[in-house]
Amino acid sequence: MRKRTIVSFLLIMVLLGASLIWISSDSVWNKKQKGTYQISYIARGKKTESWSTIEQGINQAASDLGVEITPIYLSSENNVREQISLLRREVENGADAIVIAPVNSQNMRAPIADATESIPVVTIESTVEELASLPYVGCDNYELGQELAREIIHSGGKGNKVAILQNSLGSSSIKARYQGMVEILQRNGMELFFWEIPDDPTQAYETAKILLQENTVNKAVAFDGAMLESLAKAEKDLSPPGVTTVEIYGVGRTNQVVSYVEEKVITSLCVQNEFNIGYLGVKTAVNMINGQRGENTTVNFSIVNASDMYSPENQRLLFPFVR
């Protein structure tokens, strides 16, 4: 009798243990089924409006896919040391994946390569050269630079002296836009001036204002939204009301930049589908967590001006918050 009791007790313990294992496994499975992954998004600058559309796409993807996003911005623009530290912190803290806009290609190569040994990493807007397996979501920035250069040549009538703002050239996206543009402008005999501009928007405005006053350029171009806004503001403040002395061109979107296009302070603007960059960056990260291979994804861009900014296609890029 005692032997049967012991056997029954052991059987009950085995069944109880199996039940606990099943409950634990089912809990983990349900967590993964519900998609409650922790994904960290690390920008390459401070939290400003120029990143707002990408973040909107990220948040929409988080809502659709049921993941949790930790948005992380730097304390100063293009601070590579801080971005490296934040990347390592998020890996150590147990993030399931990282979506990152690298500050620059050279310095971020080793830290990102190290991170990919532990978790999926997806680069957005900019990428890291020589990491062939690293997925990238963004536009073809070299082609973007060439198309904007053609727009400068064909749409402008003030002359052939072009000032190109130089900042953040360590970023692969900015560098590719710069290279694409310079190639086309030089090929077409434009006279180029290269202006070194600080990364901080306030300092960029003051520097651009001085350079616009000191030089006799006909056109000026910036390669990201914050710099473009600073350049356009400087031009507007220097010019008589309703008059643009220097034609302004550039890449990137903020509400003020859109307003400057409407006012014709900015002659032409190149805007990429930033909402899709954010959305597809998160989607790619989730796919990689689930064992799929990370693929490069190229998004569209468009060149707009005051005459066509309200076309249905361009409205979706310029006013992404109204969907």
Rank of each mutant, 00 (worst) to 15 (best):
M1P: 14
T5E: 07
T5D: 08
I6P: 13
S8K: 11
L11D: 01
V14I: 09
A18M: 12
I21M: 12
I23P: 00
V28L: 09
K32E: 11
Q33F: 04
G35W: 03
Q38N: 07
Y41T: 02
I42G: 03
I42L: 12
T48I: 10
T53P: 08
I54L: 00
G57H: 08
Q60P: 00
A61N: 07
A62F: 05
A62C: 03
G66M: 07
E68T: 08
I69R: 03
T70G: 02
P71E: 04
Y73R: 07
L74G: 01
E77R: 07
N78M: 05
R81M: 01
E82H: 01
E82N: 06
V99G: 10
N104H: 02
S105W: 01
S105D: 04
A110R: 06
T116D: 04
S118Q: 14
S118N: 14
V122Q: 06
T123S: 09
T123M: 12
I124A: 05
S126Y: 11
S126D: 02
L131R: 05
N141Q: 06
N141L: 00
N141K: 00
L144M: 12
L144K: 02
G145M: 11
G145Y: 00
A163I: 02
Q166K: 15
N167T: 15
L169S: 11
G170N: 05
S171N: 14
S173Q: 05
K175N: 12
K175R: 12
A176N: 08
R177G: 13
M181F: 01
I184A: 11
L185C: 07
L185D: 10
R187G: 15
N188E: 15
E191T: 12
F194Q: 13
P198E: 11
D199E: 14
Q203D: 15
T207P: 12
T207H: 07
I210Q: 11
L211H: 11
V217Y: 06
A220S: 12
A220C: 09
A226I: 05
S230G: 08
A232K: 02
K236F: 09
D237N: 15
G242Q: 11
G242V: 06
V243N: 07
T244W: 12
V246G: 09
G250E: 14
V251C: 14
T254F: 14
Q256F: 08
S259V: 11
S259G: 12
V265S: 02
V265M: 11
T267I: 00
T267G: 01
V271I: 10
L280G: 00
L280A: 01
V286Q: 08
N287F: 10
N287S: 15
I289H: 07
I289K: 08
E295R: 12
I303E: 04
N305L: 11
D308P: 01
F319G: 08
P320E: 01
F321T: 12
